[in-house]
Simulated assay, not measured.
Amino acid sequence: MPELMGAKNTVNAVAMKPRVGAVRYLNTKPLVHGLDDADTPFSLTFDYPSHLADQLALGLLDVALIPSIEYFLGDGYRIITDACIGCLGPVWSVKIFFRTPPEQVRTLALDEGSRTSAALAKILLAERLGVRPQLQALPLGSDMRDCEADAILLIGDRAIHPPAIDAVEVWDLGETWVQWTGLPFVFAMWVARPGIQTEAISQALMHARNGGLDNLQMIAEREAPKHRLTTSECFHYFHDNLHFTLGPQEKAGLKRYYELAAGLDLAPSGRTPIYDDCEIAR
């Protein structure tokens, strides 16, 4: 009987762990380094960014790495750590492929895996060129060569390894944003829904990010073959294309992105970001 009670208590302890969701793309690997350890104070699952946002909104997750646009669409969300996915220039894994010159685009197909990049694409086309194309969904797993839209937004692995699309121009959206605004871009942050105790979670997430940055070469060696990359390509993606710290400039970039999104009715007005006491850890 004591053995059965002990086993039951163990199962309950596991079941009661906070539920955390992380992006399944390559770009998240340095953020989750070592989180498969048994001592991690939460259970971790992986999914597409848009799915994580939906699960957080439904209460199926307590904390998630969600698209930054979804933070401003949520109710009472808090940013709980300075670990994020961002860029200071070209990001490589978020691109628009134009079949016609950008100023002539009438239809835009949006990768269903992300919502921040979709909003960013709309902002850049509208604010820079005055272009507001009709939108089409590009389902996950679809054959993009069958898509007839004037432009196609791809994210993640699909952007890194795009099919043979006849493109007259390609925008790396990280590079386009930084050149236009002079600010970093933040694609995703660790966000908690209301009422969740996050101190232990946030510390674990920052520790994982710090460990990931210290082990980029090892992570690149492990992940590169899974994503049809060389170790060098994978390392430079982590080291040069991505940025993992939400500092003052990144917060300014996030604020600018929100203001532009609200101006195009892509987000509600009057929202102010709520940051937990997440000091810059590096």
Score class of each variant (00 low, 15 high):
1 M>G: 15
7 A>S: 11
19 R>W: 09
22 A>F: 14
25 Y>P: 00
28 T>A: 15
28 T>Q: 12
28 T>D: 10
40 T>I: 07
45 T>D: 14
54 D>A: 15
55 Q>H: 09
56 L>G: 02
57 A>F: 02
62 D>Y: 02
62 D>K: 02
68 S>Y: 04
77 Y>S: 01
79 I>M: 06
81 T>M: 05
96 I>L: 14
99 R>Q: 14
101 P>N: 11
102 P>Y: 04
105 V>Q: 05
108 L>M: 06
111 D>K: 01
112 E>L: 08
113 G>Q: 07
122 K>L: 14
124 L>V: 12
133 P>E: 14
136 Q>R: 15
144 M>S: 06
145 R>N: 14
145 R>F: 06
148 E>K: 05
154 L>N: 00
155 I>W: 00
157 D>V: 10
164 A>I: 12
167 A>F: 04
179 Q>D: 15
183 L>A: 07
184 P>I: 08
189 M>P: 00
191 V>G: 02
195 G>E: 07
206 M>A: 15
209 R>Y: 07
210 N>H: 11
211 G>K: 03
213 L>Q: 09
215 N>F: 04
218 M>D: 13
223 E>F: 03
227 H>W: 10
233 E>S: 10
236 H>F: 08
237 Y>D: 09
237 Y>H: 12
237 Y>S: 08
242 L>D: 03
243 H>K: 01
244 F>H: 06
248 P>R: 05
253 G>N: 04
257 Y>C: 04
260 L>V: 06
274 I>D: 12
279 E>Q: 08
